[in-house]
Amino acid sequence: MRKSLSRYFPVFVLPTLAAFTIAFAVPFVMGIYLSFTKFTTITNAQWVGIDNYVKAFTYDGDFVHALWFTALFTVVSVVTVNVFAFILALLLTRGIRGTNFFRSVFFMPNLIGGIVLGYIWNLLINGVLSYSGTDLTYKAEYGFWGLVLLTNWQLIGYMMVIYIAGLQNIPDSLSEAASIDGASPFKTLIRIKIPMVMASITICTFLTLTNSFKMFDQNLALTAGLPEKETEMLALNIYNTFYGRSGWQGIGQAKAVMFFIIVAAIAFIQLKITKSREVEQ
């Protein structure tokens, strides 16, 4: 079977592999190499060692600022999205009327793309702020909380759906046994429901973490980094370094490599945690 199968490698694998090589593998390797060079058109790349990596931090404070801004935004988003999503999931697993309708409404924003989302909230927030004679670009705090609001609106329904699936997997006998033993609803929540949905909590934390950390479209459409790059997140900072200044492409690529390493580290830690949980259960 195996031998005859290998003759079919070109049919089954080659189209995917060719596309993967062109779109991902070759650009990835080139990207690593170019992060150690100075270039404007790739063909004129000159080796400069770790110069780009040093310059990313020292030349101006934008990258470090974007890093902190993104980290803070990510922490706030992960906490708010997951708390609200979990509360909604608890309310929607109690068998009340209209559960399906509510679930549909809360989930829908997740399907709308980042650019459209950004402009919808741009209209809404600027409309509210116009009463005080300001707008989103007036203060960095406005942009920050605007992004948090938008992210909550987008991701709560998505996480809620995952939590609902987790809560529905808890056997009824467990909650029944707890209530017969006289446990209060709060105690049932802390001692039974939360431990039983730990897997969902890990997944949702990871999804909100990576989604918030890698955010680009929403950032571009809502604030575009204004005022003065103060609301510029990492992905947008990398983009602006590449396409905003000629001669800075190498530094942009170095920033992109560091961005990749951080995201990979988050994914790796997540994988470790999930694995250790699986052993426990």
Binding site: I22, F24, P27, Y239, A256, F259, V263, A264
Partner: peptide, 25 residues
């Protein structure tokens, strides 16, 4: 090996390859 390459690509953010990908394309 191919399988691990495909899985690996899932964690790489787009910014990492966007400039070089545009060039190759």
């Amino acid at each position: 090996l191919l399988y691990y390459l495909f899985v690996f690509s899932m964690i790489v953010p787009f910014q990492m390859v966007m400039y070089t990908m545009t060039y190759v394309v």
